[in-house]
């Protein structure tokens, strides 16, 4: 099998994930896109492992680890998302702008703060 096929598929999958991360508004969808990107990397790892025929199978081993780390990541990420949703009553990335310039973010923060208190 040509190495190009899995490599190009992985590259395209990764870029689709990038688009999803950058374009999606819902945090959970952003996390899904991150999973896509991780899987693109997994595909690369497996393909190059098969190509290189590594004695210790570093590619496959790392793929397993990546899967594990991804599982942990999605668990923690969802916990954070839930926490954010509880305090801010929203799961939209572009409404979580407290890191921005205060004068721009102030009205939004002022509007959401009492709700967060109420929670």
């Amino acid at each position: 099998m040509h190495l190009v096929y899995p490599a190009v598929l992985a590259a395209l999958l990764f870029c689709v994930g990038v688009y999803g991360v950058l374009a999606r508004r819902n945090v959970v969808l952003v996390l899904m896109s991150v999973e896509l990107m991780l899987n693109a990397v997994n595909l690369n790892l497996v393909a190059f492992d098969a190509w290189l025929r590594d004695a210790v199978h570093a590619g496959q081993a790392l793929t397993l680890f990546t899967v594990t780390v991804a599982a942990a990541e999605i668990g923690l990420g969802l916990a954070i998302v839930l926490l954010v949703f509880r305090t801010r009553r929203t799961a939209d990335v572009d409404r979580l702008t407290l890191l921005g310039d205060p004068s721009e973010a102030a009205p939004e923060a002022a509007a959401t703060e009492p709700e967060g208190r109420a929670a």
Binding site: F14, V18, Y19, R24, R25
Partner: peptide, 20 residues
């Protein structure tokens, strides 16, 4: 479902895809 950043995201993704 998509934020206002969509077109910038598309541009970046396409550029990255082309490069990669």
């Amino acid at each position: 479902a998509d934020s206002g950043n969509r077109w910038a995201a598309l541009l970046v993704a396409l550029a990255a895809a082309g490069t990669l």
